[in-house]
Computed example of a mutant assay.
Amino acid sequence: MAIQKILTVLFLYLALAFLLVELTNAGGLQLGFYQRTCPGAELIVHQTLYRYISRDRTLAASLLRMHFHDCFIRGCDASVLISSTGNNQTEKDAIPNKTLRGFNVIDAVKSALEKKCPGVVSCADVLALVARGSVVMVGGPHWDVPTGRRDGRVSIANEALFNLPPPFANITVLKQQFAGVGLSVKDLAVLSGGHTIGIGHCTTISDRLYNFTGKGDTDPALDPRYAAQLKKKCKPGNSKTVVAMDPGSFKSFDEDYYTAVAKRRGLFQSDAALLDDAETRDYVTTQSRTHGLTFALDFAESMVKLGNIGVLTGEQGEIRKRCAFVN
């Protein structure tokens, strides 16, 4: 009888623990969140996205960047997608987001989902799933994306202007901004590796090439031969030309970014800044020497952390019918 009583109590404790876990999951993110409410949702995302990436691989970097820019401001709530109104300038129109591309891709994915399951899948989840799909489609790692995010209703341009890590940031600023959203120094080094795909505009490196300290000089942290190559492409005042962030393989997700940074050929000051801290420098050096031995796994882990920043779940926020407009 004593053993039976103990077993009964133990069973009740386990049942209670299981119930608490279920309740916790119900209020947060889950793998397969839409399995019952919108079966095939992730397949719809993949198929729609593939139509775009297969025609233009450069969109992958833009869509990854869009997710990053969204999560850094108010968490991963799709606030970066909201269009400005006469009464409010939104994140989309902030200077750091002026060069974002791929809003039409997000709209196409959302439209396809709305036809299948009206009012079910959030724009925030679309962004997270599209970021992963984009990376995978250009040779990068796969990671689990738990879903169940809700969409925010607030988007303010100045928040993006002042809180997104700028391309001219030094290592101190970068570490502070990443820590501010719960990301570690290692996450900083790892997520910077996303620059293995994509392009940069000449305007973002003009001062670095021609007026670094206000005396018409070039950033001494930049390899002189690489600086000379950039100057041929980016003449003073050039606002139209773009250059690859990872020359030679900017359409493929690989570890070459770290090799470039180790050789002082990172395009932005924020790339070069990784050599100014012991932990980030060690990561750069290790990946460049080992041909990115752990980069894919590390990137997947850091992207999961990024996608969990400040999420709205349960009854918070809303499910937007159109990603550019609050319901």
Rank of each mutant, 00 (worst) to 15 (best):
P236N: 08
A112E: 11
G133P: 03
R149P: 01
I156L: 10
P247A: 05
E279G: 07
A169H: 00
N87G: 13
R225P: 10
S239Q: 13
A60Q: 00
K175R: 08
E315S: 15
A124P: 02
T90Q: 04
Q229Y: 11
K110D: 12
V9H: 08
G292L: 02
G317F: 07
T218H: 02
A108Y: 13
L23A: 11
T147G: 03
V105M: 02
R65V: 15
T313L: 05
S252P: 03
L306A: 07
A278T: 10
I3H: 13
L293D: 14
K5M: 12
E318I: 13
A124L: 01
S270D: 01
S184W: 07
N104Y: 14
A94S: 05
G193D: 02
R281V: 10
C71G: 01
M137D: 13
A15Q: 06
V284H: 00
Q316P: 09
S111H: 15
S62C: 13
D282M: 12
S155A: 04
M137P: 12
D277Q: 01
M303P: 08
A60E: 01
F325M: 12
F250H: 10
F103E: 09
F33T: 05
H201C: 11
R153H: 11
Q269F: 07
V136E: 10
V138R: 03
V173C: 00
L161M: 11
V185L: 04
A157N: 06
L312P: 08
R51Q: 12
L164Q: 02
D217A: 05
S84F: 07
T294I: 09
K92L: 14
L81W: 07
R289W: 12
F250Q: 11
G27Q: 14
P247V: 03
S288A: 08
G198L: 05
R289V: 08
N163Y: 12
T285Q: 09
A15V: 07
V45C: 01
I95C: 15
L127Y: 01
T8S: 13
